[in-house]
Design a protein around this nucleic acid. Structure first.
Length: 358
RNA sequence: GGUGGGGUGGCCGAGUGGUUUAAGGCGACAGUCUUGAAAACUGUUGUAUCCGAAAGGGUACCGUGAGUUCGAAUCUCACCCCCACCGCCA
């Protein structure tokens, strides 16, 4: 969430950001509300100042003076109450709008309407070619007893799966390999909780927009779809010293996604599931543009190197403004070549944000 | 799930309706003294926000939210978290 002061001082930038991200956002409404907010704030603070001054007099006054003063203050109190109510009404809408303010995209983010205009920046490796039709992961893994999708659906429902035998072994092996790989790069390993308090989803910009895509508990908590949420919350409410930054974390967590907005997409297999485990690279650094750019590149290179050691052909995509989410400033997607589909897809994304409030 | 105790500044800790401008201590920083340090002494020491060119001043913040009151760290209600014990489950 951007600071209202920044928004006021850089209204044109925010307006441009909304245009580039194809976000409909009524900035003028927010600015008008903020004027009202400040006006009410001044009125309330003046009334409270009076209350404090007279309050002190009351404490020291004689019994008769006391009664008069208290009677006077009753009217001040009534007026103050009215102003506070008006302020509350304004604040409600103000807060709703503040959550919709788009973050300012990096200057290098390409203009574009949607994903079709994302820009390929880089490709690596030889795409494997076969003189026979390539089987996809579902066929291969089912045949080799690595996954059981039928029983997965029986037990979990739509998009359910069991990893079994070599499928389970491979999964553990890959996590161990990644743990080792990133350990060498000085990332501190974490196992993070997936059940997280609501406020941190707002803080990381997942709520209110993704409410439909998140599982919610009967205690009003949410299940996170990425370790980004608990790991940002980890330092929530803390002030970090510059000397301890940047912090590099590698967090393992279960991830839960309802996939409510993706009906019909990847309905089979392991590509889009409700529940999975993931390792997430996360770096917290100074709010400094140059450093953010550098570390963003570092995170993305780490993943690309990881794919290189596995000899998987892949490409880097620069995500265009129209395909960028509200809070992100810049994002690379790294996509792996799928021989069975003759297409790049489903890799990992590296993005960066400014001014997260958690 | 139940009962009891608790949550106050960077830390410890006092404070049960108005002299609180949150006592006192520790720590940190600066100064005096010293060849230097320690000790001692003196002073300074939160965050946010509003007004102001600045100096300065206002407001809010004692776990969170609401309420009572002219006035709340203090009283009431709800919730969160910590500690102890009990129950249940593993």
């Amino acid at each position: 969430m951007l600071d209202i002061k920044f928004i006021r001082d850089n209204a044109d930038l925010v307006r441009l950001a909304a245009t580039k991200k194809k976000v409909k956002f009524d900035l003028d409404r927010l600015l008008k509300l903020d004027d009202e907010r400040l006006e009410f704030l001044r009125a309330i603070e003046t009334a409270r100042a009076e209350q404090n001054v007279v309050g002190e007099k009351i404490a020291k006054a004689s019994a008769t003076d006391k009664a008069t003063l208290i009677a006077d203050m009753t009217t001040v109190k009534e007026k103050l109450k009215g102003t506070e109510e008006s302020m509350a009404t304004v604040m409600k809408e103000w807060q709703t709008l503040m959550l919709q303010v788009p973050n300012i995209p990096d200057i290098s983010v390409p203009e574009g309407q949607d994903e079709s205009e994302n820009v390929e920046a880089y490709t690596w490796g030889k795409k494997p070619k076969f003189d026979f039709p390539a089987k996809d992961h579902i066929e291969l893994m089912t045949a080799l007893g690595m996954v059981d999708l039928e029983r997965g659906t029986k037990v979990h429902g739509f998009r359910g799966y069991f990893l079994q035998g070599a499928g389970a072994e491979w999964s553990w092996a890959l996590f161990n390999y990644a743990r080792d790989f990133f350990g060498r790069k000085n990332f501190v390993p974490f196992i993070a909780p997936a059940i997280v308090k609501k406020e941190y989803f707002y803080g990381t910009g997942h709520l209110p927009r993704e409410a439909e895509d998140l599982y919610k508990t009967q205690d009003d908590d949410y299940l996170s779809g990425t370790a980004e949420v608990p790991m940002m919350a980890y330092h929530g409410d803390e002030i970090l010293t510059e000397a301890e930054l940047p912090k590099r974390y590698l967090a393992f967590s279960p991830c839960y996604r309802r996939e409510a907005g993706s009906h019909g997409k990847d309905t089979k297999g392991l590509i889009r599931v409700h529940e999975f485990f993931k390792l997430e690279q996360l770096i917290i650094c100074r709010a400094d543009h140059n450093q953010s750019v550098e570390l963003h590149e570092e995170i993305n290179r780490n993943y690309e190197e990881f794919l290189e050691t596995l000899k998987l052909a892949h490409r880097r995509l620069v995500i265009c403004g129209g395909d960028l989410s509200l809070g992100k400033v810049k994002q690379y997607d790294t996509e792996v070549w799928f021989p069975s589909q003759e297409a790049y897809r489903e890799g990992s994304s590296a993005s960066y944000y400014h001014d997260f409030q958690t």
